[in-house]
């Protein structure tokens, strides 16, 4: 780490749980962010600022005027641009030291799976069930940690799945009935800062899992209702009948 990096990350390095060794680890980490919208914006901004060495950005959408109320990685001049390009520009300006790879299209399950095998952790900031289930299945199969969150209206939820731990639930344990459609925010609305709160927690969890420190949200579902400002942490058990994770052989080497 050169002098400029030592100084840039000095507030991390001062943390006894991180230190120079932890920061070095972050700079060598590869993180996949699926979705550069409301959640993906704070996730990408904080992880770029934190010095995650390589960010893989996936999003098939273009920046729309109605995104800018909450998707803070993009700006008004970038309306119409691919979101991954718009985000890359902003993130590279924030931290020129990091490397990024962009995918400006919705990845098919097979391509997604291949990409997931090349990263240390996945952050699900996507907006639809199909993508969420595909990400989960690939993470379970390849033993890749997954930080998952969702938001709508005044509410948010966030959790962590660590498929290498035998007791970890997976996203499918939460939604045993995959065919059910949830509400989408274009129909129900979303209060801008809710994505900032929940996305920031996702970024915290990514850093903790990468550094293997602290207590993660694995096995717990953190729920937020900002209208009444109530937080809830539910214990989330693994579903022994889960079609995705129950049949996987969990005796894997913990990386």
């Amino acid at each position: 780490m050169n002098d400029s990096s030592l100084y840039r990350y000095s507030r991390h390095i001062s943390l006894p749980q991180v230190t120079r060794i932890g920061q070095q680890k972050l700079t060598q980490s590869r993180v996949l962010i699926v979705g550069l919208g409301g959640l993906g914006s704070p996730v990408a901004l904080y992880l770029a600022a934190a010095g995650i060495g390589q960010l893989m950005l996936v999003d098939g959408d273009q920046v729309d005027l109605s995104n800018l109320q909450r998707q803070i990685v993009h700006n008004t001049a970038q309306i119409g641009q691919d979101k991954v390009i718009s985000a890359q520009t902003r993130l590279q300006a924030l931290n020129p030291d990091i490397q990024m790879t962009t995918y400006s299209y919705r990845l098919e399950p097979e391509a997604l799976q291949q990409l997931i095998t090349t990263v240390d952790i996945v952050v699900d900031c996507s907006d639809n069930f199909t993508t969420r289930f595909a990400i989960n299945a690939a993470c379970v199969r390849h033993g890749i940690p997954l930080v998952s969150a969702a938001v709508q209206r005044w509410n948010g939820q966030v959790t962590v799945f660590l498929p290498t731990y035998s007791q970890s639930p997976c996203y499918a344990c939460l939604y045993p009935n995959q065919e059910e459609e949830g509400e989408v925010c274009s129909e129900t609305g979303i209060l801008a800062p809710v994505v900032g709160i929940i996305g920031s927690i996702q970024a915290v969890e990514v850093i903790k899992v990468l550094l293997n420190i602290g207590e993660s949200l694995c096995g717990k579902l953190l729920l937020l209702d900002t209208f009444t400002l109530q937080w809830r942490t539910l214990k989330l058990p693994k579903d022994p009948a889960c079609l995705v994770c129950s049949s996987v052989n969990f005796i894997r080497e913990i990386r």
Partner: peptide, 14 residues
């Protein structure tokens, strides 16, 4: 006993 609506959006929609 608590009831929660599942939240699914990523706020990515246009």
């Amino acid at each position: 006993v608590a009831f929660f609506p599942p939240v699914t959006g990523g706020s990515d929609e246009n």
